[in-house]
Simulated assay, not measured.
Amino acid sequence: MATIPTFPSRDDVLRMARSTTDITGQLLDTAGNITRIAINTLDPRDGSGAEVLRVLRRTTAELAEASASPQAQEAFYRMVDTLTRLGTSGAPLAVHPVSEPAQALLTALGDSLLPVLDAVEPAVEECAAALGELVEAMSPLLPATAGAAAGALLALTPLLQAATEVLRDSAPELRRIADALTAALAPLMPLQVTLAERAAAAGAGVARASLPPLADLTEAAAATAKAARPLLVAGEEILVSGLEQLQPVALAAASRAGRVARAAAVRVSAAVSPAAEPGVVVAVTPG
C-alpha cells in the first residue's frame, strides 16, 4: 500500500515562495535591461537606430544583389569545385607512403636544428637588438626612402601596364611558345634524370675522397691561424691607431670643405638672386 506523502511545512512553503520571487525578479530585471538596450539602439529621437536600420537594409540589399548576379554565382560554383578537387586530391596525401619519409625528414630536421637554434639564440637576440637600434637611428631617412620608392613605383607603372597589354594581346603566341618548349623538353627529362643520378654518384665519390684531405687542411689552417694570432692582433692595433690619428685630419678637412661649399653657395645665391638690393655685395671669406 502506497504511503501518503507528507505536506510541506510552513518554512518550506515560505522558502519556495521566496526563491520563486527572487528568480522572477531576476528574470524581470534581465528583460528590462534587454528592452532598455533595444530602445536605446533603435530610438528614433537619437537618430542612431534609424541609421543602423538604414545601413542594415542597404547592406542586405547590396549583398543580395551582388550574390544574385551571374558572375557571383559562377564564382561560387568555381570556388566549390576547386575546394572539392583539393579535398579529393589532397586527402590521399595524408596516407600516401611518400608522406612517411617526409614526416621522418621533418622530424630529423627538427631534432638536428633545435640544438643549433639554442646555441645561436644569444647571437640572434643581440643582432636583432642591434638591427632595431640601426633602424631607429635611420628613421629620419625613412620618409625620403619611402618617397623614392613611391616615385620608382609610379615610374614603373606605365611599363608594367604596357607589358601587360602586350602579353594579353600575344596570348596565342605565348601558348605556341609553351607548347613548343614542352614538346622539346619532354623527351629530355628521362635523360636528365639519368645524368642527374650519375652526377650524384660521381659527386658523392668526390666528396668522400676529398673530405679527409679537407679536414687535414682545415686543421693545419687552424693551427697556423692560432700561431699567427699575435701578428694579427698587432696588425689590427696598428690599423686602429692609424685610423685614430687620421680622424682629426679627416674632420678638419670635412669642416673646411663644408665652409668652402657654404661660401660658394652664398656667393652664387647673391649673384643670381633677382631680389638682391643694388649696391649690396655679399662676400664670405673662408676661415
Rank of each mutant, 00 (worst) to 15 (best):
S112K: 08
A128H: 12
A38W: 02
A178P: 06
L53C: 05
A31K: 12
P278A: 04
E173C: 09
E65N: 14
E237G: 07
R18Q: 04
L83Q: 07
Q71V: 02
V166G: 05
V95D: 15
G258T: 12
R85H: 01
S273F: 03
A252S: 13
A201W: 03
A128M: 13
A163C: 13
A254K: 14
R10H: 09
T84R: 14
V268Q: 15
E236A: 13
V260G: 06
P230S: 09
M189A: 14
D29K: 15
G205E: 10
T3Q: 15
A228Y: 09
E219Y: 03
S210C: 09
A94P: 00
A228E: 15
D118G: 08
P97G: 01
A180P: 00
P70I: 07
A276Y: 03
Q247P: 01
M138I: 04
V166W: 07
M16E: 09
V206P: 02
A264D: 08
L114A: 09
A31S: 12
S67I: 06
P187W: 04
E74P: 07
A200S: 09
A225D: 08
P274L: 02
L142I: 10
G242K: 11
T30C: 10
E197I: 07
A123C: 04
L93V: 03
R176Y: 02
I34E: 14
T6V: 07
A123Q: 12
L154A: 15
P140H: 01
P248M: 05
P213G: 02
T41P: 01
E125S: 03
R57I: 12
T88A: 15
A68Y: 04
P70K: 10
A72S: 12
I34P: 07
P140N: 01
G235Y: 10
D46L: 11
Y77L: 10
L114P: 00
P213F: 00
A220F: 03
E51A: 15
N33I: 10
T107G: 00
I39R: 13
D111Q: 14
P230A: 15
L113F: 00
R58C: 01
